[in-house]
Design a protein around this nucleic acid. Sequence first.
RNA 1: GGUCCCAUCGUCAAGCGGUUAAGACAUCACCCUUUCACGGUGAAGUCAGCAGUUCGAAUCUGCUUGGGAUCACCA
Length: 555
Amino acid sequence: MDYKRLAEMLYKNVTLTPEYFFEKYPERNLAPGAEVTRTAPSPTGYYHTGGLFGAMIDKLVALKTNGIFYLRIEDTDQKRQVPGAADVAYNMLCKFNTKPDEGFMGEGKKQVGEYGDYVQSKRQEIYTAFAKRMVELGRAFPCFCNASEGKEDIKIRREKQLEESDEIIDKDPCRNLDIATIELNLKMGKPWALRLYSNGDPEKTYEFTDLIKGKRTLHENAKDIVLMKSNGIPPYAFAHVIDDTLMHTSIVVRGEEWWPSLNAHLEIFRALGIKPPKYAHTPVVCKIDEKTGTKRKLSKRYDPEADTRYFIAEGYPTVAINEYLLNLLNSDFENWRKANPDLPYTDFPFSIKKISSSNPMFDLVKINDISKNIISKVPAKKLLREIVDWANEYDTQLAKVLLAHQEMAERLLAIDRENARPRKDIGHFSEVKRLFCYMFNEFYDNSTSLVFDDKYSKSDIVNLLKEYVKVLNLDESKEQWFDTLKQCAFVCGYADMKTYKQSPESYKGNIADASNIVRVAITGRTNTPDLYEIIKLLGKEEVLNRLEFVISSLK
RNA sequence: GGUCCCAUCGUCAAGCGGUUAAGACAUCACCCUUUCACGGUGAAGUCAGCAGUUCGAAUCUGCUUGGGAUCACCA
């Protein structure tokens, strides 16, 4: 076979060569040990939490080695394209503290770096140059099978193959077409895709070292995978090889789902005579499927938290997500955090080697805990500003109300805050309304909020509240105030904790019960910050109104 | 079905042939607190199973089981 001639037939207008591009994109001038990493999402509408998981590794490795972390947009599948999605990816990376040093910086913005374009759809002349070379090398051939006509065809063919035998046919029949037939097909205008002429033997194996998985044996690739689709655009594999070579990625961090196709990628590198980068195949972030009870990959369709925007919309501090993800990556992070409560997480001695190779289960409860700790350390003024900023975008009603009662809101948030052991009640900002609704008449409806514990009888509640209404005095100090509440409780048959414990049957309840009744009557909740502070913020008139309402509605 | 990967409390996990099998979240109890919290102390809970190697196995080997990934002109 005359490969040179075949190459001319297939790519007669292609004049640029790989050598031209090797020269155009020379080796990076970086300090020894500096690693070049990248995240390469496809713009399909959202940025996946699993993507951020990997980007954390990329960013941290680049940071630790004084290297480069860049963003490349993999938009070679036009069908799945969603307008604006590349911006989403870039914005999410920025929000989640993994801003790229180089690459795509947003739609219409100037890209940063000398190795662009960083959007694959703009790199067509590069891909064709390498495609032509593959043909010249005798390592690629045109395939005229009409699998491209619809996804269904491929699906059916595949399922049929799976049913009929254990084996999927690797070698494509078109590899044996003679040049005359090819020429004829071309003349007839038949659509064609370019396939790798694989010369691997799946029986043979070789050693490969992955940065996370360690030393492994791989089978040689035998699949004549597609290098250029019939629309002339390369699918992932070929674009990956070319881009990461030309952009000089030193470590490719990607999900474990790529592991099975690694041997094919390596075969392309070898065919082209290019040294492949180092690889780090990360575990896949999973979740328990509520319906089936089984473990599965975090999926956008079923799990809102698979979309990084979810955490923004729910009002989590983005660092909380970073720290959680880092904890999944290197589980000793927690211990480090405990020992270094005030250092930025980027100071943590992160190591790729410490990444476990089993798939972690995504745990929102744990995130909430991390988040609560982080939020608890934010001073009230700053916290209010953060909540309002969030609410401006996601809950304008809340934003309005908070601004209308700005001073009160700030005092509310200041309760038990800015001290050595701050209160930890806010996990994310979308909880704020529910948590503090009783402070704002715009949100509070006491007729639906009365949830007294069943153990208190209506008459007991009414008696206590009636008594309390008589003595309520907001000019008292906290000690005096509580003393008044206590006296009032005693009159109604409640005792202080110690006395109560000695003979519970002699009393209606203890002081905690009495406080609980008053708290629920005023706020509708069993859990609020310090009641004294709440009452002062609410004002005497409002508190009396609420108490009277409860008394009358329980009578 | 083929190939590959994984397996320690409910979850994240230390562990690298000899440990009372760390720690964190969650759960529960108690203490502190004249309330809610914060905090403190403690409890419960794990080596998937079966063989083998070994004086000795969570750790090494094999099988079984369970789970995951993949087998596209998607990435």
